[in-house]
Design a binder for these strands. Sequence first.
DNA 1: TTATTATTGAAAACAATTTTCAATAAGGAA
DNA 2: TTCCTTATTGAAAATTGTTTTCAATAATAA
Lengths: 145, 145
Amino acid sequence: MAASNLVDDWAARLRKEGYRLTAPRRAVIRVLAETSTSLAPDQILRRARRYYPKTGLVTVYRTLDVLKGCGYVRKMHRLDGCHSYAPASAGHAHHIVCERCRAVMEFKGCDLDALIKSVRRRTGYLVKGHWLELSGLCPVCRKEA
Amino acid sequence: MAASNLVDDWAARLRKEGYRLTAPRRAVIRVLAETSTSLAPDQILRRARRYYPKTGLVTVYRTLDVLKGCGYVRKMHRLDGCHSYAPASAGHAHHIVCERCRAVMEFKGCDLDALIKSVRRRTGYLVKGHWLELSGLCPVCRKEA
DNA sequence: TTATTATTGAAAACAATTTTCAATAAGGAA
DNA sequence: TTCCTTATTGAAAATTGTTTTCAATAATAA
Ligand SMILES: [Mn+2]
Ligand SMILES: [Mn+2]
Ligand SMILES: [Zn+2]
Ligand SMILES: [Zn+2]
């Protein structure tokens, strides 16, 4: 889906959930809909202010929480300890992030069944969830590197 | 390896790397060698003070950095945003953590080859690294739950 | 329009981590 | 042992990331 459509789509769905559609929320949504990389809250703030200069950092955090609750964004853990957020489509998925330019891409269909079964057998743990993030080089950086 | 042996082993290896063997370092090492759960820095501090009461939080952080650099502990990301540390054996491995009692267990042999190949084909990314953490119920909690 | 109340942003509070720096002590040399 | 060098320590202060508070604002339904 195109970025501009994504904005409208998310906005409409937020409305349906009972949230009010405000200027700073639109700005944050637009930033996330337009990015191809995952962004930390302060980066999101800077970009959101291009669309609505009065946007506050607190609202960025609050909007991220709302969007995360609705499943539109995914919170990612970065190696440096910071957290960043990336747009996420519906359903279970993971992200791969480019080590060089930070571009992220979502992928679905993680087949961990064999791995999980093996871990279960060897550790005795009942596996209920998993956290998986891949890193590497995006197609663009692959050529340049 | 038994916990007490682990302490000596890590200590000896730190010495070999040129680090001085100090009381607070011994205390932190002992805490990590003895635990079966992953621990946050402030938890490590409290336990380390049982062995060397003057231990400071700063030194806990610094020692964790040293141990992480040597590959003796692994930094884990917790769902609540905090970070915790767990003992790690040499080589590539991952951890599974119990959702109920926080007990962690390391497992080796993560076979992600098929998954990685599939992601590479679908996203165009060259996959270079992965972050994987499993969660679930440890054998003990499994029975009680 | 007006009323209701969810939402906002500034400031303060909080929490995790790092930096600074003078005092201490580990380990090699004598 | 004793002495020296310098890595290491811990208290305090500084930074950074995130949350709470609260009076003012503005989105929506009536
Ligand atoms: Mn998955
Ligand atoms: Mn994290
Ligand atoms: Zn790239
Ligand atoms: Zn358990």
